Simulated assay, not measured.
Amino acid sequence: MRKSTKIAIIVVIILIVVGIPISSYNNLVSLEQTANSASSNIDTQLQRRSDLIPNLVNTVKGYATQEKSIFTDIANARSRLSGATNIQDQADADNQLSSSLSRLLAIVENYPELKSNQNFRDLSVQLEGTENRIAIARQDYNTAVTNYNTKRRSFPSNIVSSLFGFQEKPLYKASEGSKEVPSVDFTK
């Protein structure tokens, strides 16, 4: 075998040995950043909803003065959401807030003059759009995390991920209580 052929074979082997880990590392970094970005998009949409809620609550307060507990529940849920430190705490607080908002919107049904109020209608439309954005952001996050976690566990990326400490990311999951229909009691 000629010397130049041996050198070429050695260069190809080195490129393969070095190239695969570098490619795997770069893919993992890219997928991790996509998941982080998707998580930030959830935060942005949740903040948008949190910013809308006080306006909606104040509009309803003027009509539904006897429904004070719902306003307290909403305030507590917003506070819990803003203090969430990880994705599961955020999901639990988000579900609590969604439940409280569902109860608030059910209360509105008892106040036809409120439903016809232009400010309330505008806020409701904005809130509905925000809820749709939140749902899409959650789906995008879960897709990004699934892609990242799959790549992280696939060969040969699993070797690179363990060497460089790429950790599994949790999916955005609804809390256990989110499957229950919120109760609304107008007798209080």
Rank of each mutant, 00 (worst) to 15 (best):
D51T: 14
T187C: 07
N41G: 11
F120V: 07
P182G: 07
S50T: 14
L123D: 09
I74F: 10
T130K: 04
F186L: 11
A137I: 04
P156T: 11
N58G: 11
E180D: 14
F164T: 11
N142C: 00
V125I: 13
S116P: 01
L52W: 05
K115N: 09
V184C: 13
S39P: 06
F71Q: 00
E131T: 02
D122A: 11
D89F: 06
I134L: 09
F164L: 12
M1S: 11
Q66C: 00
G129I: 08
E113F: 04
T146H: 10
S4R: 09
N95I: 05
R80I: 03
L97Y: 00
A64R: 10
M1K: 07
S98H: 03
N132Y: 03
E131R: 04
R48L: 11
S30P: 05
N119C: 02
F166M: 02
T150G: 08
V17C: 10
F164A: 11
A106Y: 08
Y111I: 08
K6H: 00
Q167P: 01
P170N: 13
G129P: 02
G129T: 10
S178F: 06
L104P: 06
D185Y: 08
Q33P: 02
I136P: 05
S183P: 03
R48H: 13
A93E: 02
N117S: 01
K68V: 14
S40Y: 00
G165F: 02
V12C: 10
A144H: 03
N55H: 08
S162W: 02
I10K: 09
S99A: 15
S24A: 14
L127W: 03
Q45T: 14
V181Y: 06
I107F: 15
D89R: 06
T146W: 06
T34A: 14
S100P: 04
L101D: 03
A137P: 05
S24K: 00
P156G: 08
F155G: 02
K173H: 12
I9K: 01
K151E: 11
I134K: 06
R49L: 05
